[in-house]
Simulated assay, not measured.
Amino acid sequence: ELEDVEIEVEELEIQLQPVAGAPAQPLKAAVAKPAVPAKPAEILKAPFKPLIEEYPGRIREVKLGATRGEGGSRGKTVIVGGENSPSYYLFERAPPHPPAISVDVFDIPISLPKAVKTYVKEVMGDPAEWARMAVEKFGADLVTVELMSTDPLIKDAPPKEAVKTVEEILQAVDVPIIVGGCGDPRKDAEVFIEVAEVTHGERVLLSSLTLDMDEAKVLEKVARAASEHGHAVLAFTALDLNRAKELNRKLYSYVPADSIIMDLTTAALGYGLEYTFSIHERARMAALMGDEELQHPTLSGTTNAWAAREAWMKLPPEWEPRELRGPLWETVTALSLFLAGVDIFMMMHPYAIRTMKRIIKEFSSMGKAKPEKISDWVSVKI
């Protein structure tokens, strides 16, 4: 240790002695380049086992129509519902019943898009013949008779006149029928009560019962009439599951749960179809997870597709002919909701009906998917 030292030198060399015990630093060896892996000759094989879910809930089955042996006069019945998986999860299980198509028939001539009117103009003045055409020519599983004449703002036809039309259609076809009202809650209540009594035992679907009827203090009367005469009811709400559950709770007091079908509203392609798809999918999943108030089959008023201007208006050439554009609009609307799990489709155009029936037949013939086939969905060439 030096203090207060001055050193004058021309060159200073300092040597540092290594610390005892410190490891010597080895020289770095040359790093060899990694070997290039061999090109695989085949895909590694691994077992594939799809994840199968078991759901606590199940959609109730609803039967429409009644044969002679069951107290009605139908040649066949239609059963919908019964699903215990999301729509067409074929790797879990196939649906027990295929969706059904009902064709709309109106009791008075109304304004229709030209693409539809072309096929029905000869029978528009005769609802019974219109219904017969729907079954024999279009292949309808059911017929929906829309009693527009009862609307107080159109003709305000009395219930007895409406019932006569329903009776004529029952005689003209042997498939189950849906009886649609005009939308006025009080007038619909009068008509439905009369229809329920006259068609006792036929198990028709009354379309539709609403919360507006409850506000008008007529829901109980209609529901009791439907139950007393063995019919089913369509519970209509507008894209709101809470209101759908509320309406169903009210109906449970008067109608058996296996006599209720839900209409959650159909917004057409380009006019809110994504909301409709979402509400149906949410309803199905909630039902499967155990929500008993939503465990009902669903119906889509797919003919709402014709309310879209693009389905029927004359548009520039790039939109293609409206004679094809319209049925395509109806088909895409129906197909989207088919994938969301809808059980009954109300439709009009024969092309759209034919296309949907082919799709339903194809899906229904698949049965439960096999894991070995699922694993072959993706293939790679080496």
Score class of each variant (00 low, 15 high):
residue 266 T to R: 01
residue 307 A to F: 11
residue 272 G to M: 14
residue 300 S to A: 15
residue 308 A to N: 14
residue 294 L to F: 02
residue 287 A to F: 02
residue 287 A to H: 01
residue 283 A to V: 09
residue 280 H to T: 08
residue 263 D to G: 13
residue 277 F to R: 14
residue 301 G to P: 06
residue 305 A to T: 02
residue 309 R to T: 09
residue 288 L to V: 05
residue 287 A to K: 02
residue 294 L to G: 01
residue 296 H to D: 08
residue 269 L to K: 02
residue 306 W to H: 11
residue 306 W to N: 04
residue 309 R to D: 00
residue 283 A to C: 12
residue 283 A to Y: 01
residue 303 T to V: 13
residue 297 P to L: 01
residue 307 A to G: 12
residue 267 A to C: 07
residue 288 L to R: 02
residue 302 T to I: 07
residue 265 T to M: 07
residue 286 A to L: 15
residue 281 E to C: 07
residue 280 H to A: 04
residue 293 E to F: 11
residue 310 E to Y: 13
residue 280 H to Q: 12
residue 295 Q to S: 14
residue 307 A to T: 14
residue 297 P to I: 03
residue 268 A to Y: 09
residue 290 G to K: 12
residue 309 R to E: 06
residue 289 M to Q: 08
residue 267 A to S: 11
residue 265 T to F: 09
residue 273 L to W: 11
residue 282 R to E: 10
residue 285 M to L: 15
residue 303 T to R: 00
residue 285 M to E: 10
residue 286 A to I: 01
residue 295 Q to I: 05
residue 283 A to T: 06
residue 278 S to D: 13
residue 267 A to G: 00
residue 268 A to Q: 07
residue 288 L to Y: 01
residue 292 E to N: 11
residue 289 M to N: 13
residue 281 E to D: 14
residue 284 R to I: 12
residue 270 G to L: 13
residue 298 T to K: 13
residue 291 D to R: 11
residue 287 A to I: 03
residue 270 G to M: 08
residue 269 L to H: 02
residue 264 L to C: 07
residue 304 N to M: 05
residue 291 D to K: 10
residue 278 S to Q: 12
residue 305 A to L: 09
residue 285 M to C: 02
residue 287 A to C: 05
residue 275 Y to P: 10
residue 295 Q to C: 07
residue 278 S to W: 13
residue 309 R to L: 08
residue 300 S to V: 01
residue 267 A to W: 13
residue 292 E to V: 15
residue 292 E to Q: 14
residue 272 G to F: 09
residue 288 L to C: 03
residue 301 G to S: 12
residue 281 E to W: 08
residue 291 D to M: 06
residue 304 N to Q: 01
residue 292 E to D: 09
residue 281 E to M: 14
residue 284 R to F: 00
residue 299 L to C: 03
residue 308 A to T: 03
residue 285 M to G: 00
residue 298 T to Y: 06
residue 279 I to K: 09
residue 280 H to Y: 15
residue 305 A to P: 08
residue 301 G to Y: 08
residue 290 G to L: 10
residue 287 A to R: 03
residue 299 L to G: 00
residue 306 W to L: 11
residue 306 W to P: 02
residue 283 A to S: 13
residue 285 M to I: 15
